[in-house]
Design a protein around this nucleic acid. Structure first.
Lengths: 155, 155
DNA sequence: TATATAGGTTTTATAATAAAACTCGCAAAT
DNA sequence: ATTTGCGAGTTTTATTATAAAACCTATATA
């Protein structure tokens, strides 16, 4: 139990925050998810200072969240694209956005995100148990290696 | 289509970031989820500067993320507790933590979070369609009011 | 009554952010 | 072929946020 509290400091939230905890990080990411690719696009959409934007993009590239490539057809242009690692931040970003909708702005803000296949709204991002029950903070518990039941197949 | 891009700036991510976008915000929140309640506990656990901690806690209270109450048994003491609004940040926080585990630190970091009922690890936080399919960014689309099919019950 | 504790505030130093002007390589127009 | 303009930054200077340390006040404990 004391062992749990001791190890808690080593959860990977601090590591995640190294790249995402800075101001503008989430907003640049959102813009990237919305299809922006170029320095000037980010700058004009967000109104961020150019030096800060340059710094953030460089940091994203360093951390493998975006990749930077020059466009052959117009060699002035650079494209920034989300890597798989960057794309993997989608649940985090949508969870934060949904929280903002529910608790800051007020529910039905348009446009809303829908499944492209059937046009229906996505679910609220939630913490789920292995069998799909929605979990709150009271349903959670920290476990050390020995305590965790291994998912043993029947055969 | 231009209408979608136009409205995009008004998604609630910026509103959410007003309280959560500052340095230390997620780490204080994590500590609160882990059962810390007092100023000195936060300070010692995180090593954050006292003035910054005071500022963050006050901000959380202002934004309704935590509530501040004094303890009757010892009137020096103050407890900070997560409100429902604060607790609702759990999916965001766990999503970010899981991302850090997967892409920054490397998978099996202990202790891990398990369902208190059966002791089994929780699922990865994901974006799901209305019928539970896992969605990536390519499966998502912005929709304006008219485009969204309403969930019409049969009767 | 003296001493320690909890939860801050104040002061001062340092680092991050912002606004504006500037640079440099390339492309397009004249 | 030269000028003009664009894309992607950098530099400079001003402002704001963060940090470390000392200090303060009300309460509790010895």
């Amino acid at each position: 139990m004391g062992k749990v509290r001791e190890n808690l400091a080593e959860c990977s939230l601090p590591a995640a925050l190294e790249s995402m905890g800075e101001r503008w990080a989430f907003l640049i990411l959102r813009a990237a998810f919305n299809g922006l690719h170029h320095f000037e696009e980010f700058q004009q959409e967000l109104g961020i200072a150019r030096n800060i934007l340059a710094n953030r993009l460089a940091r994203f590239v360093e951390h493998g969240i975006m990749e930077r490539a020059s466009v052959p057809e117009d060699r002035r242009k650079i494209v920034y694209n989300l890597t798989p690692k960057g794309s993997a931040l989608l649940p985090t970003m949508i969870a934060l956005r949904q929280w903002g909708e529910r608790w800051e702005t007020g529910e039905p803000a348009f446009p809303i995100l829908v499944d492209v296949r059937d046009g229906r709204p996505i679910q609220e991002v939630a913490v789920l148990s292995h069998d799909g029950r929605k979990l709150s903070k009271h349903d959670l518990h920290w476990a050390l290696p020995g305590d965790v039941p291994v998912d043993t197949p029947a055969a």
